[in-house]
Simulated scan of single mutants.
Amino acid sequence: MRASYRVTPLLAWVFSLVVLAASTVLLGFFVRDTVRHVTADDQPAVVTDVGGTSPRVSNNDRRRERSISFRLEDGTEHAASAEQRWFWSPSPGDTVHVHETSPDSWEISEEFSWIGTLGWIAALLVPWLVALAKIWEWTARKRNPERFAEKERQAKERVRARLDRSRRRS
C-alpha cells in the first residue's frame, strides 16, 4: 500500500527552517565549547593515577570514561574524568594540561578533539550551504526567467524522448 500524500510548499519551508534552526543551535554549542577550550587558562599537571573505565551516566550514551588523577605544579592533587579515546591514553608520569571549569571541577585539555570538532562543524554547515545554493538558484531564476524556462522545456523534451524510445522497444 502506498501513501498518497504530498509535501506542500509551506511544509517544505517549515521543515527547512526547523533543520536550519537545529543546525544553528548545535553549531552555536560547538563554537561556544571551542571558544571555551581555546581561551581556557591551561596549567601543566603530572598524571598520578589512571582509573578504570566506567559508563557515562546517560542511558543512551555508550561512551566510556576513566578517572584521571593529577598533581598541579603547586602540589595539589585533583581528579577529572575523561572520555576514553583511541589515540590518547595517558599513563602515570605523563604531563597533561588542565583547567578549572568551576571550583574544584577540572577538565583535561587533551580530551578535546580538533578533528571531531571541525568535522561536526562542517557537517552542521551543510544545511546552510544547501540553503545558500537554493537562494542563489532562486535569485538567478528571478533575474533571468526566460533562460530557466528554456532549460525546463529542454529537460521535458529529453524525458519525452526517453519515454518514446522505451515505448518503441516494448
Rank of each mutant, 00 (worst) to 15 (best):
I108E: 05
S109D: 11
S109Y: 02
S109L: 06
S109H: 05
E110Y: 01
E110D: 07
E110T: 11
E111L: 02
E111W: 01
E111K: 00
F112C: 05
F112R: 06
F112L: 04
F112G: 04
S113T: 01
S113E: 06
S113H: 05
S113G: 00
W114C: 03
W114A: 02
W114Y: 03
I115P: 00
I115W: 06
I115A: 09
G116T: 02
G116F: 08
G116H: 02
G116A: 06
T117R: 06
T117C: 01
T117W: 10
T117H: 05
T117F: 03
T117D: 04
L118T: 07
L118F: 15
L118N: 07
L118Q: 09
L118R: 07
L118W: 10
L118K: 01
L118D: 01
G119R: 03
G119Y: 04
G119T: 15
G119I: 03
G119E: 01
W120L: 09
W120C: 05
I121W: 08
I121M: 14
A122T: 11
A122F: 13
A122K: 05
A123H: 08
A123V: 11
A123Q: 05
A123L: 15
L124T: 06
L124F: 15
L124V: 08
L124K: 10
L124P: 03
L125S: 03
L125I: 04
L125G: 06
L125N: 00
L125D: 00
L125R: 03
V126W: 04
V126L: 14
P127A: 09
W128M: 14
W128S: 13
W128K: 09
W128Y: 14
W128D: 03
W128F: 15
W128Q: 13
W128E: 00
W128H: 15
L129C: 11
V130S: 06
V130K: 03
V130N: 01
V130Y: 10
A131N: 10
A131H: 09
A131D: 08
A131V: 06
A131C: 07
A131M: 09
A131G: 05
A131I: 07
L132F: 13
L132I: 12
L132P: 03
L132R: 05
L132K: 07
A133N: 08
A133V: 06
A133H: 10
A133E: 07
A133M: 13
A133P: 01
K134H: 14
K134D: 09
K134L: 13
K134Q: 15
K134E: 04
I135A: 11
I135Q: 03
I135V: 14
I135L: 15
W136S: 14
W136G: 02
W136I: 10
W136R: 11
W136Y: 14
E137L: 15
E137V: 14
E137H: 11
E137W: 14
E137I: 15
W138Q: 11
W138A: 12
W138V: 02
T139Y: 06
T139E: 09
A140N: 12
A140Q: 14
A140C: 07
A140P: 04
A140R: 15
R141A: 10
R141H: 09
R141V: 07
R141L: 08
R141C: 01
